[in-house]
Amino acid sequence: MLLFLIGLISGIISGMGIGGGTVLIPALVIFVHPDQHIAQSVNLLFFIPTAIIALIVHIKNKRVNFKISIPVAVFGLVGAYFGSKIAISLPGNSLRKYFGVFLLVLGFYEMIRKDKRNPQKKRVSSN
C-alpha cells in the first residue's frame, strides 16, 4: 500500500510536469529504505512504459524534433553506458550521497529558475 501511494504521488507530480525520478527516488529511499541502486532501477523501469505512451502522443502532434533528438541520443548512449557502469561499481551508500548532492543542485536550480507562467502548455512527464 505504501509503495502504491508513493507511486501515486510521484505519478501526480510527474503528470504535472514538475518532477519524476526526483520525487520517486528520494521518497522510496526515505520511506522504504531499499538499496539506492534498486530505487534508481525502479525509476528507470517506471519511465519506459510512461515515456512510450507520451511519445506516441507527441509524435502524432509533431512535437518531437528528430533533427536534434537523434544526434543527442547517440552521444547520450555513450554517457548512459559510462554513467550506468559507474553507478554499478559504487556501493549503495556512496551512490545515495552523490544522488543527494545531485538532488540538492536540481532543487536550488528549481528555486532560482524563472517560470514562464504558461500553464496552458501541457507538460508531459519526463524523467
Binding site: T22, N43, G76, V78, G79, A87, S126
Partner: peptide
C-alpha cells in the same frame, strides 16, 4: 547535452529531463 544527460540518466537513474 547528450553526454551530460546520458551520464545523469545512468548514474542517478533520473534527472535526464531536468
Amino acid at each position: 547535452i547528450g553526454i551530460v544527460t546520458g551520464m545523469a540518466n545512468g548514474l542517478f537513474g533520473s534527472g535526464g529531463g531536468t
